[in-house]
Nucleic acid binder design. Structure first.
Lengths: 209, 209, 209, 209
DNA sequence: TATGAATGAGGATTCATTCAT
DNA sequence: AATGAATGAATCCTCATTCAT
C-alpha cells in the first residue's frame, strides 16, 4: 500500500464512472462495517457488490485509494449535516447542544459509515508503520467546538478556558461522541436520544461558569 | 483464527514456560505498538524476540491466543495499579480525581502496552465478524467508576444520577481517558499531567450538584 | 496467446484500417523499445497511442498478431533499404562492405524499431514453449550474405568456403551486426560509423584468400 | 520487482539451505530454458521442482533475487571452466583458439543454463524500463579477449589494434559465440565442433598481421 | 524445547480479451 | 469504428500453521 495514488483527475470523471465508484465505496463501507477491516479484502467487497474483483481495480488505482474515499466522503457528509444546524443557533449553549445532538443523529443515521471510518482511520499508517491519524482528530474537526467554546467564553456564559483547556474540552467532547459510536456498535439498541441528552447535560455542566 | 484455542492447561505450566510466554507477549506488544496490527505477523514478532517463528506456535496454540494475552495482562496490571490508589481515598471526589490521575499515570508509564491493547481490541472479532469488545468496556472496567458515582450520590456530594445517566457518565470518563491515549499516540509530547488536571476539573464540574 | 489469429483478410482492408493498424504498430514499437517487452501491455500501448484499449483488439485479433507486425514491417523496410544498395555494387568485396555499412546505417536510423524487433523475436514462442525464431535468422536474412560469399568465391577474391563454412561466416556477420545493435541499446553514443569501419576491416580480412 | 533484495547474508547460510537454493535455481533454469522467460512463473518453477510455491519465497526474498542467481552462477562456472584452459596456453593464437573452443564446449555442456542466462539478462531492466545489461557484456567478460589481443599485438603475431578496434574485435568474438548459442537453441543438432573450428579459422584470419 | 523448513490458502494487482453501446 | 466497462485468469507475495529433527 501507499505508493503514488493520484486521485484520478476529477475533471474527467464521467457520470457512470462516478456512480460506479460511489457504489463500490458503499460496498466497501458495508463490508468493513460487517466483517471488519482485516477481513475486508477486495474479493469480499467485490462479492458484496456482485462484481468481479477486477472492476474495483478498474475504477480505483489502489485498495488504498478506495479506502481513502470512506473518510473523505464521510467528512463531507458530516459537515453538510452538522454545520448548518449549528449555524442556525444563536447562543453558544444551544450550539453546543445542537453540536452533540446533530452528531448523534448523524451517527445514528450513518452507523455503518461511521464505523467503517473508524476502522479505516485506525488502521491507516504511514510507510514507516506510524499511525497516521490515530483516532484522528484533525484540526478541522475540533475547530467548530473550539469556536463554540471561545464564543461562549466571550459572551460570558461559559467558564474561562485557556487555549490548552479549551482543547482538552473539545477533545473530550469528540471522544465522548466517538466513544459512543463504538458503544453503539456493541449495543445497537442503545437509546441514542437519551444518551445524547445525558451528554448535553454533562457538558453543559462542565462548561458552565 | 479462532478455533478451539485451549489455553494450555495452566496447572501444568512450568516456570520456564511462563517466562517464555511472557517474553513473547512482551515482544508482541512492542511489535504491534511499533508497526501496527496489520504488520504484526508472527514472523515480525519472532524476529523481534530473536526466536524462530515455530517457538511462538509451540507456546501458543494460536496467534489469537497470543494476542488475547495482551489485554488480559494489561487489565491485570491496570487493576493492580489503579484499585489500591482509589481505595486509599475517602471522599468520592478524590476517588474520581485519583481514578483519572492514576489512569493517566498508568497509561503514561505503559504507552506501548496501552497502544497494543487498543490495536488488538479494535481488531478482535467473533467468527461472524462482529466486533468483540469494540472500544472494549467490560462491566469490570466501568464498575469502579459507577461505584464512585453511586457513593458520591449517596453522600450527597454528586448530583443525582439515574442508572442510565451514571452509565453515560462512566462511559464518558472512560472515553475521555481512552481518547487521550490515542491522542498520545499521535502527539507523544503531550503534557500528560496537565491534560489529567483539565479532565479532573471537567468531570468535577460535571458531577457536581 | 496464439490461437487462430486470422490475419484480417487483407483484400478487404480499407485505407483507414491500414492507417490505424500502422499507427498502432508504430506505438507498439515505441512502447516496447522504451519500457521493454514485459511492460508493454496493450494498456501501455493504447495510452501512448491516445486510443482506448479496445481499439487495438478491434484492429488486431490478438496481441500476438499485433506483435507479429513488428518484425514483418521491419524486414520489409530492411530489405527495401539494403537490397538496392548491395545491387549497386559490382565487386563482392564492396558488396560485403556495403552490406555491413547499410545495415549499420539502417539500424542507426531505426533504433527503436530494431530494438523492438529484438524484444519481440526473443520472446516469441510456439505453443509448446519453443523459441520460434531465436535470434531469428531466417534463410531469407542469411541468403544475401551467402550469395555474396559464393560470388566472391567464384570470382576468386574470397577464400574457399564449403556450404557449412559459408553459413558460419554468414551467421557470424549477422551476429556481429545484431550484437552491435544490443551494444547500441546500452551505449547509445557509440560511434556507429567507426564500428562499421572496424567490422568491414575485420570481415574483409576473414574472407580474404 | 526490484526493491531492496538483500542477498541473504551469506555467512549464515546452512548447508541444506544452500542445497535448496541451488536446486531451485536449477529448476528455474530448466523452466526458463523450456517455456521461456515470460511463462516462467514461480508456480511453473515450483511445479517443476515438485515443491510448493511458498518454498521459493521462503528461500528467496524475491523472484528477482532468484533470477539474479542464474547469471551469477553461470558466470562463476564459466570462469572456472574457461580461465584455466586459456592460462594453459602460451601463444596468443592458441589462446584465442582455446577461448573459442572452450566457450563452445562449455555452452554445449550447459545449453539450458546458457539459454536461461540469455533470457534473464535480456529481460532484466532497471526501474525506469531501461535494459540493464542488454546482451550484457560486462567488462569482465570482454577483458580476457582484449588481453589476448593485446598480448598478440605485443608479440607481433596479431595485427595492430587501437583500443577501439580491439574492443570491436572482442565484441565480435563474443557476439559470434552468443549468437551461436541462440542458433543452437533453434537447431540443437548443429555440429558444435565444426562450428567452433570455422570460427577459429575466421578469427584467426581476422587477427592475423 | 526449539528450530528450520515447508505448506497452502488468501491477498492485491495486472492484463488480454470481450461486449454493449 | 470506437469506446468504456467489465471480466477472470494469472502472478507475486505474505503468512499462520504444521512437522520432522
Amino acid at each position: 500500500m501507499s505508493k503514488k495514488n493520484k486521485p484520478t483527475n476529477q475533471k474527467e470523471m464521467s457520470f457512470i464512472e462516478k456512480a460506479r465508484r460511489t457504489q463500490i465505496v458503499e460496498c466497501a463501507i458495508e463490508t468493513i462495517a460487517e466483517v471488519g477491516y482485516a477481513q475486508a479484502s477486495l474479493g469480499q467487497i467485490a462479492k458484496r457488490a456482485n462484481i468481479s474483483k477486477g472492476v474495483i481495480s478498474y475504477h480505483f488505482s489502489n485498495k488504498e485509494e478506495l479506502l481513502e474515499q470512506i473518510p473523505i466522503e464521510y467528512y463531507l457528509a458530516w459537515q453538510a449535516y452538522v454545520a448548518p444546524r449549528i449555524e442556525a443557533q444563536t447562543s453558544p449553549k444551544d450550539m453546543l447542544r445542537v453540536y452533540i445532538e446533530s452528531n448523534f443523529a448523524f451517527i445514528d443515521e450513518n452507523r455503518q459509515h461511521v464505523f467503517a471510518v473508524i476502522e479505516v482511520v485506525s488502521n491507516k499508517r504511514t510507510d514507516d508503520g506510524k499511525l497516521q491519524f490515530a483516532a484522528g482528530h484533525d484540526e478541522a474537526i475540533l475547530l467548530p467546538i473550539e469556536n463554540i467554546l471561545t464564543l461562549g467564553m466571550q459572551e460570558g456564559v461559559f467558564r474561562e478556558f485557556t487555549r490548552s483547556s479549551a482543547r482538552v474540552m473539545a477533545l473530550t467532547i469528540r471522544h465522548a461522541i466517538d466513544g459512543f459510536t463504538l458503544e453503539l456498535v456493541r449495543k445497537p439498541h442503545l437509546d441514542v436520544q437519551e444518551y445524547a441528552r445525558e451528554l448535553v447535560t454533562l457538558f453543559d455542566k462542565s462548561t458552565k461558569k
